[in-house]
Design a protein around this nucleic acid. Structure first.
Lengths: 133, 133
DNA sequence: GTTCATGCAAATACTTTGCAGACTA
DNA sequence: TAGTCTGCAAAGTATTTGCATGAAC
């Protein structure tokens, strides 16, 4: 939280209670806009949908948060303060597990096949989690 | 196209001129709803946005087409009649290249680390294509 | 002819913009 | 106090639904 406070300050931006709450609820797992809204409301009582959108847009720009795509039209937001990782999305219960993989070989394969210069990649898995099997 | 015709017939569904056109424009590359709409309109003159949505929903259900997520809130549709592959998305010109990779090692890695049962996965790369570098 | 599909209108959902008042620093 | 941020209202997009007409088989 401290690093985030400094980052905001450096950009002339303020660490409001709404921003704190959004960061708070994102600690556990990636959430959709609606989920963030609901969670913050249930804890703090008041936050507007528009404010959530604005905070997220600003956080993405500052690199505090990143957007992930899990399934069509399901955008989620995730704190970037953790290492690079991927997700295992359970199609039955909706749970999201994180996983760390070594994808160097794949990136090399891309380089060999194509002259495309890769900056980022997304890799997500869909299936059933241990519990739901 | 013939296999699609049979598939539709088997489900009591009809191969209309609109459906043919949608399949037609999807032959080249994955497109958004708006792109499909524009392309079909420019060729054939008339199709409604609602019809495009309905055709796509139905095609996804039948497995004729699949949704791919290239960046947040950018859903595209792609024919499934081709082999499993991934995409290289140029962030500069928007072009999409296909690429085939061997991701067996990764899938094995997932199995070793977790008891999650993977059914599908998505893997997309973002960066700059040869032309734009 | 029957039944499914399309187009239009309108409803719903999602996201962005404008502005006055509230709050952070 | 200055300047950013929030909440509310409303505008803009994107997507879905209902229904009468049209088209496929």
């Amino acid at each position: 939280m401290d690093t985030i406070a400094k980052l905001l300050k450096g950009k002339g931006q303020r660490l409001t209670s709404q921003k704190k709450e959004v960061i708070q609820v994102l600690q556990k797992k990636p959430l959709t806009v609606l989920q963030i809204l609901t969670l913050v409301k249930s804890k703090k009582g008041m936050i507007d949908k528009v404010t959530v959108y604005r905070i997220l847009t600003s956080f993405v720009k500052l690199g505090i948060v990143k957007e992930i795509n899990l399934g069509a039209r399901e955008v989620r937001y995730e704190l970037t303060n953790c290492e690079h990782h991927h997700h295992l999305v359970c199609e039955s219960c909706g749970q999201i597990e994180d996983i760390q993989l070594c994808e160097d070989a794949l990136l090399k394969e891309v380089q060999q096949q194509s002259q495309f210069k890769v900056k980022e990649h997304s890799l997500e898995f869909f299936g059933t989690c241990k519990k739901c099997q």
